[in-house]
Design a protein around this nucleic acid. Structure first.
Lengths: 196, 196, 196, 196
DNA sequence: CATGAATGAGTATTCATTCAT
DNA sequence: AATGAATGAATACTCATTCAT
């Protein structure tokens, strides 16, 4: 008996995900340029030809990886936004971001590996800028509600601090005092703004 | 009759510099992997063979580019350290860094293009970590003298902020409020620490 | 639907053999260093890429050529050893060797083209020495059985004679009196040793 | 005061010889194809440009190496022919050849390295054949005088034996019983032919 | 005579992509 | 859906040779 439409769909999705995960893993490990399509297919346990049934090209795979990874962040952020009591949003967002960093560093690593390559930014630059702005705007909203005087500016400031911390941690995870830095961030931006 | 030793030395230095400049330019523009040795030679206006007369390999060119770029930063930093009155070191360092960013963004761009590529970090990782630590330690020393309670931690914090700001600026120079962010940094870390 | 395992196996063997034959032909004609991988692929009627699908490198192709050629000799020698009545082994071995020389001179030519190149001997030296010793030992055994007083030494002597004859023939096939020389070899070493 | 014509001539000759010696050394060590012109110049302690004043091309250097090496053999052979009493010519020739082999193996090595490369034989083939024939004819003359019935054939036989021995020795100098083999050669061909 | 900077065609090798089965 | 054989353009690097000084 042939597979039902549904079963086929399921298989397709599962295979797609397998490929994406292999690609994420490998791009994070070796960079986009140094990862071959054959590498990915092998890691995913299927043939090159089949991989091209799921993704038209290495470039389309890259876009898919980007979307997949971003969706993952979105998910976390959204969960925090929906479940956190008003005053705890910023600390919770920070924890969400840095917990992900500690548990899956290669995930954020991938983010910067891609974002700093001119050839890749030519493809995904706008998407990256959009996502970044979106994430930053979450902080801006919260800072405004907490009574900060220039929430837009403080959002840029805080977000720069976050990205800088992530990158410094990735550069040298053994030495970077991640927990303390995050604590300090929360101390500075996590509560209501004290009127002077 | 052969050229004198001096003439040769001059020619060599000039050619080397030309090649190096082309390499910096192109690595910053297109990334290391997407820049071909032929690209560099053509941009420098000379033959591939000659390029290999000066640099053993694309990799050795990469190292030279790295050293050259680092020397450039060192120079600026050292100048600030030697000429600034005690209390103005941090503001001056920050200005030195961000003036360079505003005037030669491709210079810092190159820095991150290189630092986020696994294949490159396999070669230059230690050098990068060393340099970063060195630069951060400049801030730590100053923070300690300004009476900060945990200068080591505050150094990590400030340095993360700096790198995050640079990267956010590079991602979207048109929108990023660089001047204000720097001002805010100076406001936070540029003076003496207020005893609580 | 993919090809069956068998179909693939067949294709692979056929293609491999085609490549190998082209390589043998060209190495024998122009030497290893002067044969380009493109030469081989073109002669085999396929693309460079495909050649690398079958052989990792020019060097691995060289090893394969060596093994193939050696297997060819082995085959002939073994056949003689298994089918010859005791007293006729040496004459038959000599005929086997020199018949091959007369009918496929480029085969032996290849043998010496490879064996006299330092770069190649660095790779295959031990293999060559081993094979040579093996073949010589066949003669030693027979000489011993035929009652020669110093079969080891006479083996070296006879084997030197053989190789010298092959090379002299290859140097100038038109003039070299191959048949008579072989006849003379057989007269000297082909029968039982006359007790003095 | 400028150098005299004679002094110049002397210097030129000395330099030429230095270059040739370096070339011989390197060709013997690494083969013709793997020796670069720069290698030779460096080994000879002079610049590439100067080397091209002495030799038009790598090919012309090859020819000169060939002539130089051959002249060296000729010299030895001629000396033996002129100084040996009639009956001792063959033993003395053999000693001359094999003494050279033992003391300067790279010299004979070069001989075979060159003689088995198709690209080189395209240039020097005739020269090689001529030289070989010449040397063999020395033996033929002596064999005839010693009363051998088919001196032409025996000359081919003996000469094959000589070349085979040289090559076998070069293949594995540590194991090859050179002295005994030579002794045996002399025993077989060194005296007068016994009438049957 | 002497130098070594400069050239550029040539070589081994890789890899995204296609396609017959 | 699935395979892996096949393609060929692209790339880092080498080397004989030339030439200005």
């Amino acid at each position: 008996m042939p597979r039902t439409e549904n079963q086929n769909e399921e298989i397709r999705l599962a295979t797609r995900t397998t490929i994406l995960n292999s690609a994420i893993q490998l791009f994070a490990q070796k960079g986009y340029a140094h990862t071959t399509t054959r590498n990915i297919a092998t890691a995913a346990g299927l043939s090159v030809g089949l991989m091209y049934h799921y993704f038209d090209s290495k470039e389309s795979l890259l876009r898919a990886v980007f979307d997949f990874a971003m969706a993952r962040i979105d998910e976390r952020i959204t969960a925090v936004l929906q479940t956190s009591p008003p005053d705890t949003v910023i600390p919770n967002l920070l924890h969400a971001i840095f917990d992900l960093l500690a548990s899956e560093p290669e995930f954020w690593s991938l983010f910067y590996i891609l974002r700093t390559q001119p050839a890749i930014m030519a493809l995904l630059g706008d998407a990256f800028r959009e996502r970044t702005a979106l994430l930053r705007s979450c902080f801006v909203v919260e800072l405004a509600q907490a009574g900060w005087p220039q929430p837009e500016l403080e959002g840029y400031y805080l977000y720069s601090l976050i990205e800088g911390a992530i990158q410094q941690y990735l550069l040298d995870p053994a030495s970077y005092p991640l927990a303390e830095v995050v604590e300090k961030m929360i101390a500075q931006f996590g509560g209501n703004h004290e009127p002077v």
